[in-house]
């Protein structure tokens, strides 16, 4: 009466089709063998305790003798994979964007000319700069400004690095390799000019690799006050 072919035929014709589940033929799950060993619980217990002890003693030994595997390079066959921060640290990549620092010139004054490019580029609006004129008699007066205040709110900062890219003087960099410390209060996350001038790059330098040409540099004749009449 039924138009559908029997299931066995279907599966023969289309071997890629799954056999339909037939609920009128319940699958027989074999009853597990409850041997004396299973019932007394002792072989399984001994095996489990053995595994526990092995794991414990191996790790204990490696910690005791200072042979702990490198948690990144050598953890593929077990062993402790925890990094014990802050005693142990995984090195940050070369290009890791850490805390900002303000680079300095050869004479130790800051490179920043308070052009406000970084604070304009900042999408989080966490940079606040108050530009100021150099004092009377300083050769840079009237030629470039300097920030009387340079404040970065490290809680607002999203570490995008746009400020570094925007800077025309290579005055702000994020190559310190540091991240902000967990402080007690929010105002401690407000980093000011002198603090950021104190930070160094990973090699301990406060300068920048890129050369800076001061007014009067013969290799860059254009950069001189003589041209201010033009």
């Amino acid at each position: 009466m039924s138009t559908t072919a029997p299931e066995s035929e279907l599966s023969q014709n289309k071997p890629w089709t799954k056999r339909a589940v037939r609920y009128d033929e319940p699958a027989v799950i074999p009853r597990p063998k409850r041997t004396a060993g299973v019932q007394t619980y002792i072989p399984a217990w001994a095996k489990g305790t053995g595994i526990t002890m092995k794991n414990f003693f191996v790790n204990f030994k490696e910690r005791l003798l200072g042979q702990k595997r490198d948690p990144v390079l050598e953890n593929y066959d077990g062993g402790i994979t925890t990094l014990e921060y802050p005693e142990e640290k995984r090195p940050y990549p070369e290009r890791f964007r850490g805390l900002h620092r303000l680079t300095v010139r050869d004479d130790g004054s800051m490179r920043c000319v308070a052009c406000l490019c970084c604070s304009t580029a900042c999408p989080a609006q966490c940079i606040h700069i108050v530009p100021g004129e150099y004092p009377e008699g300083d050769p840079r007066r009237g030629y470039e400004k300097y920030p009387t205040e340079f404040v970065i709110d490290e809680l607002r900062c999203i570490f995008c690095g746009f400020c570094v890219e925007a800077c025309p003087c290579d005055a702000i960099r994020m190559d310190t390799g540091m991240h902000p410390v967990p402080y007690d209060s929010r105002d401690q996350f407000i980093y000011r000019r002198d603090l950021m001038m104190g930070f160094t790059d990973r090699d301990g330098s406060r300068r920048s690799e890129n050369e800076r040409h001061e007014p009067g540099d013969p290799s860059h004749p254009g950069v001189t006050r003589k041209h201010d009449k033009h």
Binding site: L73, Y85, E88, K89, P91, G177, M178, V181
Partner: peptide, 19 residues
């Protein structure tokens, strides 16, 4: 990638970086 980085640095070690 991180293993390569760590390998280049000579393994996971106390580093100069401060928290």
């Amino acid at each position: 990638t991180s293993a390569k980085l760590v390998d280049a640095a000579g393994g996971v070690k106390p580093s100069r970086m401060q928290a």
